[in-house]
Design a protein around this nucleic acid. Structure first.
Length: 283
DNA sequence: CGCCTTTGACCCGCGC
DNA sequence: GCGCGGGTCAAAGGCG
């Protein structure tokens, strides 16, 4: 994995040169997608090499479908009763809590480590093997009281250097001040582009990697696929605002903030070239 | 001792 | 109905 001295100097390593992020929210999966390519705003492109991000949207609000990936638990069903008859599970937990229409933000990060320090404290509560993947998926919950944010972390089997981190829920607290993650201080601009089809997780990942690789070679080829991009951005950005406190204190929040900064990106992608960071072009 | 990870069991929805 | 896959629980153990 490419990791230059700059990254190290910035404290980004071993997080990688490319941190991709995606968003799964209430948009039709096939309708929109986005890639946010990082670039530093002050023109000092060197930092830029440290962080690229991408955002995509998918949804599942149609016909009451809620879960973006994975199966949904039954609505409002408290699984206590069922558990009581078993030898374990006698406490009647809130398992089966309905997954609401909360957007899930998926960050694709190139990293050698699975659990990136994003500034929050997480407790791992489960791990499952992922079908067709040698890498397990880990489940984390925010340890802050009354904070119900969860996140899942899994490594892409297609590109083992890529870690998919999906966040679900809203932090109702600030980033613990004592837990500052490694994040470059510079500000990046972002550029949305697209993912073709995020109907299912597998396709999503494939597309993501496809675009990741293509983007590295020719960002100019990226285009918006539909006219709903702006709407999607606004929708998702709003979700972000209510979802996570932005303090520039952690990578993911940072990306979210940058995403918000680009709500007014024109629909026509013709302008993309103008905002594509030079670093990506290799210049 | 508190916090966290590990891990097997359990529950649920879905497809066949 | 059954099996599968995904998600969660919670006991047990590790670690600082």
């Amino acid at each position: 994995m490419e990791c230059n001295s700059l990254e190290r100097s910035l404290g980004l390593y071993p997080y990688s040169t490319e941190a991709f992020s995606t968003i799964e929210t209430n948009q039709k999966p096939s309708e929109v997608g986005g890639v946010i390519v990082g670039s530093d705003i002050d023109g000092s492109s060197e930092t830029l090499a440290t962080l690229n991000s991408s955002i995509t949207f998918s949804s599942s609000t149609e016909a009451g479908a809620v879960e973006v990936s994975g199966k949904r638990k039954k609505d409002g069903d408290v699984k206590g009763e069922g558990r009581e008859s078993s030898k374990k599970r006698i406490k009647g937990k809130k398992k089966g809590e309905k997954k609401q229409n909360e957007p899930r933000f998926v960050f694709i990060t190139k990293s050698e480590i699975d659990h990136l320090d994003d500034g929050y404290r997480w407790r791992k509560y489960g791990q499952k093997a992922v079908k067709n993947s040698p890498y397990p998926r880990s489940y984390y919950r925010c340890t802050t009281q009354k904070c119900i944010v969860k996140k899942r972390v899994e490594r892409s089997f297609q590109d083992p250097t890529t870690v998919l981190t999906s966040y679900e829920g809203q932090h109702n607290h600030h980033v613990p001040s004592s837990l500052k993650p490694n994040v470059p201080a510079k500000v990046f601009t972002t550029t949305p582009t697209l993912f073709s089809d995020t109907t299912n997780r597998s396709n999503f990942t494939q597309d993501l990697h496809h675009h990741m690789h293509n983007n590295n070679h020719n960002l100019n080829s990226l285009m918006f696929h539909n006219n709903n991009m702006q709407q999607s951005i606004n929708t998702t950005a709003s979700a972000f605002e209510g979802s996570i406190y932005s303090h520039n204190n952690n990578i993911n929040n940072y990306l979210l903030q940058q995403f918000n900064n680009h709500q007014n990106i024109p629909q026509e992608y013709g302008l993309l070239q103008d905002v594509v960071p030079s670093i990506v072009h290799g210049s």
